[in-house]
Every structure is written in C-alpha cells, then in structure tokens.
Design a protein around this nucleic acid. Structure first.
Lengths: 109, 109
DNA sequence: TATTCATATAACCGTCAATTCATATATGGA
DNA sequence: TCCATATATGAATTGACGGTTATATGAATA
C-alpha cells in the first residue's frame, strides 16, 4: 500500500482530491468531469480509499465518494520544519526556474 | 524530470532533505549518515538538484550540498486548500468530545 | 425477467524509476 | 608523477505503477 506522499504524487489523484474538495461525487461523475476512463478512476479511488484520503457511501447503484483530508496533516507536519527556510531562498528559487525555462527551450517537447 | 511531489515521495530523498536541514554535507558524509551507497546518494542528489531542492558548492574534491526549501512552497500551497478541512475534522471531533463532556456533567457518574 | 446503469476488477502492456556494479573524472597529496 | 580520495555516470536489472480492454457483479427499471 502506498503512503500518503506517494498517493498525492500522482497528478490524476490530486485532481480527484481537488474535485472532491468542491463536492462529493460518484465515480461516473468524476470520470466525466476529469476526462478519465471509469476503470482508471475506480483504481485511483481504491488507492485513495486504502490510504484514507476518501470515504465511500452507497446510494442505490452509486458509490458516492467524499474527501477525508486527515492523512494530509502528516505531510503538512513534515513541511512545517521547512516552512521557515523557503523564505530565505526566494531568490534562489527564481534563479532555478529561469534555468529550467532555459533548459526546456532547446527540447522538442 | 520529476516534479516536486514525486521527488519527496521517495523516502530516502526525504531523509536526505531532513539531514540537510541540520547542516550542509558532502556526498560521502550523507552516504555514511544514512547508510546508503555513494552512487545511490549521488543519484538522489542529482534528482534533488534538478528539482531545485538542493544546491552544490565545490570545496576541493568535495561537493557540499545544501538545502533549498523553495520548491516545497508549491506543495504547501496545494495543501492550504485542504488545511481548512482537517481543522473542520478536528473541530468536529472536539465538538463531539465537548458534547460527551456536557452529557457526562449531568450524570452522577 | 430481461435489460440497462454504475462500479469494481482481472489481465495485460509499456514505461520509468530505484538500485547495484563497474568505471570515468577530477582533485589533493606524497 | 603516482596514488588515494571524492564524486558522477553509464549499463543493466528489476519491480512497480498508470493506463486500456474486457468482463464480472449488483442494483434499478421497464
């Protein structure tokens, strides 16, 4: 089973969470809203369920998924040790982004 | 190239960052402290470098790595939308506990 | 009951990252 | 110059994960 860090490393799963932040949703509704296949959504929801980030309730044939942000607190705690630091390094960040931009300008992608 | 979420999804890389939070360090020192092989540390450091989370300076034969927490701000921002949710959860829990407390206050027990 | 809707899951494939081993590069010191 | 130290990197392996297709399960409905 994936830990919370690995779970939110996946962009589609973050989109699912962002969507559930707005309102609870069924699987089909999520698939339609995010433009992803139903099996893929179901798979991601399984991962999210197993990591405790979403919960399900059954309504007739539908499964309604809702957000549980609790597990994200662990990451927030880990980040807190770094929060003091990044203000000190704003200049370095800007410089780094410039470097990345320059790197990408030579690529086909 | 991995994005910041993927970079910190790797436990060893988080350990490297945690280590660098204490003090700057050479590759060999990191390898020794974390009990990982030198090539592995170098590879993780490359990833961390490319994502802007660490910087290097050369001191004789050594490369001294230091932390740059800047990119973590992106994750912190993403989390901020959820922060209110787990506070709600905590509030709800606290309220629930308060209710129980109030209930008990009427009883002889 | 037959059918349709909603969801989960199995089987499979391709990709990609983590890890190890061996080696290259570069610096400092004898 | 020769050797040791410090680090990076290439090659190869392995395993895990995202995504698709096809199918199973089960509930609602005509």
């Amino acid at each position: 089973m994936l830990d919370t860090y690995a779970v939110i490393a996946e962009p589609s799963r973050r989109r699912i969470l962002d969507r559930l932040l707005q309102s609870d949703s069924s699987v089909t509704e999520l698939a339609k809203d995010l433009g992803l296949s139903q099996p893929l959504i179901s798979k991601h929801l399984r991962t999210l369920r197993e990591s405790g980030l979403v919960r399900v309730r059954v309504e007739a044939q539908r499964r309604i998924y809702s957000l549980d942000a609790g597990p994200l607190a662990e990451i927030d705690e880990w980040l807190s040790a770094y929060r003091i630091k990044w203000n000190q390094h704003v200049d370095a960040l800007a410089e780094h982004l410039d470097q990345r931009k320059i790197s990408r300008e030579g690529t086909t992608k």
